[in-house]
Amino acid sequence: MEKIIEIKNLSYSYPDGTAALDNVNLSVFMGDCVGILGPNGAGKTTLLLHLNGILNGNSSVKIGGLTVDEKNLSVIRSKVGLVFQDPDDQLFMPTVFDDVAFGPVNMDMGTGEVQKRVDGALDSVDMKEYKERISHHLSYGEKKRISLATVLSMNPEILVLDEPTGNLDPKHRKEFIKFLSATDITKIIASHDIDMVKSICNKVAIMDKGSIAAFDTKENIFKNKDLLKLHSLY
């Protein structure tokens, strides 16, 4: 199998000196769905921000064999679709259409292709009739789904999701999980939603205090109750 993400000895401190990541190693294969669990402040979001070069620790992240650095940035960002936790950060254009088209337009696609991508992406999250709607008039669940469409329109090879089911009501959460398990793109999902990780991921990484405490198949991780308890997950 092909390694699609390779992180070696990644460490990162925020400008104010707070150490956020400490010697992280992680390899993800094509088609994997990796759940990242861990208490608040464990460094999950910081790790995700390294996957498309928003943050750059010590250039030890490789996506599809390409090192994440300044010169590969545009290629990497078209391969890695990162969805932020707060949909009000993800949706910044006036209409849903403009938002979903933002990525494709930046990838220099022609008008026809952009239209096609937007329709396809909105269709896959079941929001096609929302195209002309205005983002701030939508409900939280609708915003969450459209957030996902904004990266699906870029046809990414890897989906990176920060807390995708957070704050969703049970019905929308279930729909979201169903949708995620149906797509076979490689996925990295940081979440506190253990049941969701259990149902869609095949591998689980546990993060605590900036490092990966455990990385194994879902079965092995969830069998180990002591491990879960140790990291406030049980």
Partner: peptide, 23 residues
């Protein structure tokens, strides 16, 4: 802080300082 996050989210979707529009 929100402005910062919005900027990051724009960068994540290929924004590189140049505003492109659909004609």
């Amino acid at each position: 802080e929100r402005a910062e996050r919005v900027y990051l989210s724009m960068c994540s979707r290929g924004f590189n300082g140049e505003i492109k529009t659909l004609d």
